[in-house]
């Protein structure tokens, strides 16, 4: 058998296959880039080059109108996983000194007797974010906001490192109580509510989400209601507002009671 040449214009297989592939490409490309952009409703095409760019997915320059400004002040905190990894001892020490002004509400050992959050052992990213939000006004509280007026970025980092350094009170769920309520363990999928535990521990911890074990039920309920009625807005991308708005009162109570159920330990009482 004499070897015929494959890559030659005399080879019908070569010409046929390349021709067929090229024709499909040209025809579909012509339809895609020249015809279809004009047929799409609401697509204002300025010319052939514009049609081609639009079909190729080249982003258009944004419109001239101003970006809509947010009605509320939003959190500007950026967290990354390395921020709090190895706090310097001096930072923890400075934090301890600064934290003396927090003790009246949050307890001398970071465990509160006043329905304020327990801070001992809380994740540093959480304390950092909340303090930062109080400072920028993304979160407002008559008691907390004035404290932040005089706190620097370094102060905030130090306080966060100090509280994270303290031992965390153990979570407690009496045997008689039922297992975690559905809202905590499974959420409510049809209402778009992820389980509390998928961010706040139990299933998974997400950056910026506090652990809630042993926190005051009054405090948890108050925050969920504040998210639901829009008076607290420093959650990232509306995460907590969307969850809280969809929760019914019974679920709010169940979640708060579940997380709060704790014996009063020596350090707490």
């Amino acid at each position: 058998m004499i070897e015929e040449r494959l890559f030659s214009l005399k080879n019908i297989w070569f010409v046929g296959s390349v021709g067929a592939a090229a024709s499909v490409l040209v025809v579909s490309g012509g339809l895609a880039f020249l015809v279809l952009p004009y047929t799409e409703r609401g697509n204002r095409i300025a010319g052939i080059w514009d049609a081609i760019c639009s079909a190729a997915g080249v982003p258009k320059k944004s419109s001239q109108s101003e970006t809509v400004a947010s009605q509320t002040k939003l959190s500007s905190v950026v967290l990354n996983s390395d921020m709090f990894k190895h706090p310097a001892p001096v930072s923890i020490g400075r934090g301890a000194t600064l934290a003396q002004q927090c003790a009246i509400c949050h307890g001398p050992t970071g465990v509160s007797r006043a329905d304020s959050p327990n801070l001992a052992g809380q994740y540093p990213s959480v304390i950092y974010k909340q303090l930062h939000d109080f400072k920028t006004g993304a979160r407002v509280n008559a008691v907390m906001s004035p404290f932040l007026a005089s706190m620097t970025e370094q102060d905030i980092l130090d306080v966060a490192s100090y509280y994270a350094f303290l031992p965390r009170p153990p979570g407690y769920h009496p045997d008689t109580a039922e297992v975690a309520p559905t809202i905590v363990e499974s959420g409510a999928p049809m209402r778009g509510i992820a389980p509390c535990g998928s961010c706040h521990g139990g299933i998974e911890n997400k950056a910026g989400s506090p652990w809630l074990e042993g926190q005051s039920a009054v405090y948890i309920k108050a925050q969920l209601h504040a998210f639901a009625n829009g008076s607290r807005t420093n959650d990232i991308s509306l995460q907590m507002r969307n969850v809280a708005r969809q929760m019914i009162d019974k679920e709010i109570d169940q979640a708060a009671e579940y997380y709060a159920s704790k014996p009063l330990t020596e350090s707490g009482e």
């Binding site: 579909s28 339809l31 952009p37 079909a55 190729a56």
Partner: peptide
Amino acid sequence: GAGFKFIHSAF
């Protein structure tokens, strides 16, 4: 872009 989606759909 929609154009490339169309070409891939045709192929």
